[in-house]
Design a protein around this nucleic acid. Structure first.
Lengths: 131, 131
DNA sequence: TTGCTCCTCACGTCACGTGAGGTGGC
DNA sequence: TTGCTCCTCACGTCACGTGAGGTGGC
């Protein structure tokens, strides 16, 4: 054994593997970096980005939050906020806001649906008379 | 009576009045024209657009359709379609498509809502334990 | 002359996807 | 050498809103 491995061996990966593991495109990852959501990773001499597991966790977090309807700006604000005990209470109030937003959006879609159904019914009757 | 009025007297209006009556901005009206949704009206020598009542009806139609969730491209396709008896049946099937879209969107938002509620409950419990 | 309306660009928004044109690495 | 991966711009998407800079009309 001529070589000692460093004590902390960090597995690294290039952007393509990270993207595949996170289920996103590489361009999306570069976009998140450009927007400040993902810290710029170290580069190889070739310029290739070199990621570790934390990058994967951040992307998965963003994915979840986006899936719940948070904007990237909202996600960024949360990622930037200090990790103290007030973080949770801020997060909770954001979630409550989001639920209220969803409720009004749902009501809106429901009323559209009703209107469309009524119009469709009217139109069908109308067409039957044309016969 | 030296002057005979033309048989068909058409009331005209400038873009500002049209916008106010339709409840939209003037820039939106110019945009609809640029997109081909609204036919380009005649101009005064000054270049000002001169609209009649049909323009108002078209804009109100667009407003309604947009309010129901149709995209401008969908509205444009409908406005361009020939005015025959098949128009109604095409419109009906578009409306049925749109209702199905709404249903899946509604289901999506409902499940987000449920997830958010669960997360919020969990977070509250979690915070209570921190005390 | 004032001030309101109108005109035409051109850019910004949101969250990326999709090239174009070029290079590293097995 | 091939071909896959990676790189950096730059532009397109959707439906407009918002200036900038200039002019008509009462």
């Amino acid at each position: 054994m001529l070589h000692l491995q460093p004590r902390v061996k960090v597995k690294v990966m290039r952007i393509g593997l990270l993207a595949a593991r996170a289920g996103v495109t590489t361009s999306r990852i570069r976009f998140y970096e450009a927007q400040g959501l993902l810290p710029p990773p170290p580069r190889r001499h070739s310029g290739y980005r070199e990621y570790d597991e934390r990058a994967l966790e951040i992307i998965l977090f963003i994915n979840r939050a986006r899936g719940l309807g948070f904007s990237l700006a909202e996600v960024a604000a949360h990622l930037d906020s200090p990790q103290d005990h007030r973080r949770k209470s801020r997060l909770l109030s954001k979630m409550e806001d989001k639920i209220r937003e969803l409720d009004s959006h749902l009501a809106d879609l429901q009323s559209r649906r009703t209107t469309l159904l009524n119009l469709a019914t009217e139109l069908r009757r109308n067409m039957a008379q044309d016969q």
